[in-house]
Design a protein around this nucleic acid. Structure first.
Lengths: 336, 336
DNA sequence: TTGTAAGCGTTATCAC
DNA sequence: GTGATAACGCTTACAA
């Protein structure tokens, strides 16, 4: 049933090595025999075994996307599909395959290193920061194993990320430009990288607009509905409520919206709202929310490209890429 | 730098084959030498090459999840992460890897067959029905290549799916039980498999409750917001509006909600709403929507298990699995 | 219980 | 241009 290179060689009356050269379109083979051998391959329905090729070439033509499935509602979660699509779109055309590897099995630490890297099962790695500890990066770097981080890292190595800082600036500046005199910032844990970046952008926008930073208008907390609700309740019932709020994600925004509704605060007239992330709720809220869309397909593409570069030439220096988010203006922030 | 089985053999003063047997924990090797060889493996930091193993064993210890990334907002899209997680959780513990393969490259037709199957790159396949044409199934079956479909298929082969029929029944019966005298069914294209199944459940529930089927209360169309809005407008402004509506997904429900809002129809007092799918909107609508949650992690687990069975014993007969959805009752359907 | 040697299906290095 | 032949790193009869 299965036909190998040897079968083709016999059928064509040539040597295995010749067939191999035809396979790889070597210039030292005459067009004549190429034609002939290729026809026979068609006829006999031959497909080279990639495992054998891999062994001979010492490469698997496979890259892995590392994830930690045990962490719920991670950044990757909602955008997973698009990131994968992006990666796939660039590696696929270069004849690489993508394997998804979950770190968090009950395996001993560093197991995926064995399972994939030392194993020679994959030629390169893409992982986001939640998975890539500093120690891991060092180890990979030491092994000279190609990897790309999705999300900024300090360790050596390339990464791609969204420009959260400029995102924070965009949302805040937009609200100010709409005539909201004061803007609050709600959600995210103090010290968390993404939150810090987004918050820094918020501060920058205030500064550029010559507005003071009011600590009372900055609220930290887990990025979910209840926290958004609580924060908005506090802010809106305080002596000096802000005129607008930047929310760190859709769920916080939902909570804020709910609080505003209960307090009878009209949006966008009395309170402007703008949120990070366009998915999954922003467009479907009442009123629809102004949001900052990040195109994670492009993120995947960028990561894939960097990795391909690296695999093509291991000497390629590390690169860092910041993608710009896109502001989507909707009713929640258009005061008119 | 890289250490192979030969190095270990030399260092341990035994034959390659002995090392191999230790690797595979063969019972015909003395505990003594096992210990010794294992220690050396540790010391020398040895990890067997899975490619070489694959070649020798004629298997890759890899299964593929086939998707068509070109189709936007496919069923898989939102639940992708969980399905992958489910698959991974069962194959991972059995030392299999998962690779994601995109069908729709500008490659010639049937290319993935070459790329993965004939290639020997993967040992088995999981794909959903949108990807698995009847012809493809026949071909895989002919090749005796193990595959599992996510979604019911007619072709030979195992599949796992959600019980959309009983889902339709659950939603409809729930609304009737809440005292809504009449229930409409909105969304989905006539003839589309999922829609037909869900609709059949709706009809069954009416029948069991002794209610007549009113064709005027059944609306077909693409499953998005605008269509839901249009349908609800028609239904609610007709001479005989239904008291409740079953929506085929969250977006249809959103459109219905919008229409009701504009017409001043109060929910759940004057109109009950229940929708298929709990994600991404149901919980965050105003009011929160009663929905039918499907646990796609379990779907992935089921698919993974069937495939593992198949790989373990190719003679395993095809199996068909229907998972029950879960009704989540929220405000939109509780009349009290 | 361990060792020898022949695969597994390619590629790569030389000769010719 | 083409063909032997030795890798690639592991498994698996079959011997010893």
């Amino acid at each position: 049933m299965k036909v190998t290179i040897t079968d083709i060689a016999k059928a064509a009356g040539v040597a295995k090595s010749t067939v191999s050269k035809v396979l790889n379109d070597s210039p030292r083979i005459s067009e004549d025999t190429k034609q002939r051998v290729r026809e026979i391959m068609k006829e006999m329905n031959y497909t080279p075994s990639s495992i054998a090729t891999g062994l001979a070439r010492q490469s698997s033509q496979t890259v892995a996307l590392l994830v930690d499935m045990s962490k719920e509602s991670e950044f990757l979660n909602q955008y997973f599909y698009n990131i994968i699509g992006g990666i796939e779109s660039v590696i696929g055309t270069r004849k690489y395959e993508l394997t998804i590897a979950n770190i968090q099995h009950n395996h001993p630490e560093g197991h995926f290193l064995q399972r994939l890297v030392l194993n020679k099962r994959v030629d390169g790695l893409i992982a986001n920061t939640s998975v890539l500890s500093e120690a891991l990066c060092e180890e990979l770097h030491r092994l000279r194993f190609p990897y790309i981080s999705v999300g900024e890292i300090q360790a050596p190595g390339s990464w791609v990320d969204f420009d959260n800082r400029s995102g924070g600036k965009m949302l805040t500046a937009h609200l100010l430009a709409q005539g909201y005199a004061s803007v609050a910032f709600v959600g995210g844990m103090d010290g968390e990288a993404i939150r810090e970046q987004r918050y820094a952008g918020y501060r920058k926008a205030l500064e550029q607009a010559g507005r003071p930073l009011n600590e009372a208008w900055v609220h930290c907390g887990e990025a979910h509905e209840e926290e958004g609700y609580r924060a908005a309740m506090m802010l809106l019932q305080s002596g000096r409520p802000p005129e607008a709020i930047v929310c760190i994600n859709n769920y916080i925004a939902y909570g804020v919206l709910k609080a505003a509704g209960e307090l009878g605060v009209r949006i966008p007239q009395e309170l402007g709202i703008a949120t990070f992330d366009d998915y999954p709720l922003a467009r479907y809220m009442t009123p629809p929310l102004t949001s900052l869309n990040i195109d994670t397909f492009r993120l995947g593409v960028a990561a894939g490209k960097l990795l391909m570069e690296q695999l093509g030439n291991p000497e390629t220096p590390a690169k860092h890429l910041l993608l710009k988010p896109e502001l989507i203006v909707r009713e929640s922030s258009t005061r008119r």
